[in-house]
Design a protein around this nucleic acid. Structure first.
Lengths: 144, 144
DNA sequence: ATAAACCCTCGACCTAACTCCAGGGCAAGC
DNA sequence: GCTTGCCCTGGAGTTAGGTCGAGGGTTTAT
């Protein structure tokens, strides 16, 4: 099957403008044109596009994705490089997940305070302490 | 204790420019100035800054963080709003983690192929298929 | 009392990743 | 053969989140 850019936009959830932008940025060297100069996407192109969105959705920069696609265009000889890229990216993703989880834990502690029955009291005390710290140092009190 | 912007930058891993940028954007209404107009950070300010970086590290936009801080400045009366914001943000974080994990699973399938002993063969076949698809549709073959 | 190291503001500049628009070519239905 | 709806390019504009430099005041050590 051949798909127009509009059909691909619908299938991939990327906008037409984004697809053209990706092409301009060299992410879609595999997309051919028909006699009128229109982009003609094949099913194979859609599979590569799927890979691109996977990489993008996991936070890879367009510049790196372009490099990965360049390896793909190069053929089977670049398998080691692709393997290395994906393995490194995989580690980056997992590290980022851990970083987010650590921060989430901190936020959950804040939520515990807000959810506690003494929330108002705890907040009031903390605020009084922050005010006192300002006053003790001769600073203007931003809490009024 | 009172800290200069430089000391805070070192403690928080944010650059001095970023701290000033956050202040300009209204994220640091709690930071007071000394007689010379220099920012004077207290320990309480550092705790709030820690909250800000937690929110930022989990993907919250500066505009939302500003709103959260505005609630904090408002005092204990805004506890319900803060609770709502953090709870909603928590859900956003978890959803994003799931989204990333789903995409990671896809990438792992690609990696499985690259790691397989028949990697080169599999890639070669896939490429031949993609080429054939182009030719069959009278398109130029971008794989040479 | 002077040099070095800070601090301030303001405004320009930057990067990534789009998004939009103008101007113009093709395609499909009536 | 005309209208409507696609498609194209090039280039300008946008948003988020900084980053940098100029010009000028302050603090600290010698």
């Amino acid at each position: 099957m051949i798909y127009t850019i509009k059909a691909v936009a619908e299938k991939t959830q990327l906008s037409i403008d984004t697809l053209r932008y990706y092409d301009k940025e060299g992410l879609l060297p595999f997309v051919s044109r028909n006699r009128s100069g229109y982009r003609a996407f094949t099913d194979g192109d859609l599979r590569l596009l799927k890979t691109i969105t996977c990489l993008k959705n996991t936070g890879m920069k367009l510049r790196e994705i372009r490099q990965y696609i360049a390896y793909v265009m190069q053929g089977p000889s670049s398998v080691p490089q692709r393997q290395a890229m994906l393995t490194a990216h995989r580690a980056t993703i997992l590290a980022e997940q851990q970083r987010v989880l650590a921060n989430l834990k901190e936020l959950d502690m804040k939520l515990d305070i807000y959810n506690s029955p003494q929330a108002t009291e705890l907040i009031t005390v903390e605020r009084a302490y922050a005010k006192a710290e300002k006053v003790a140092n001769g600073l203007q009190d931003p809490y009024q």
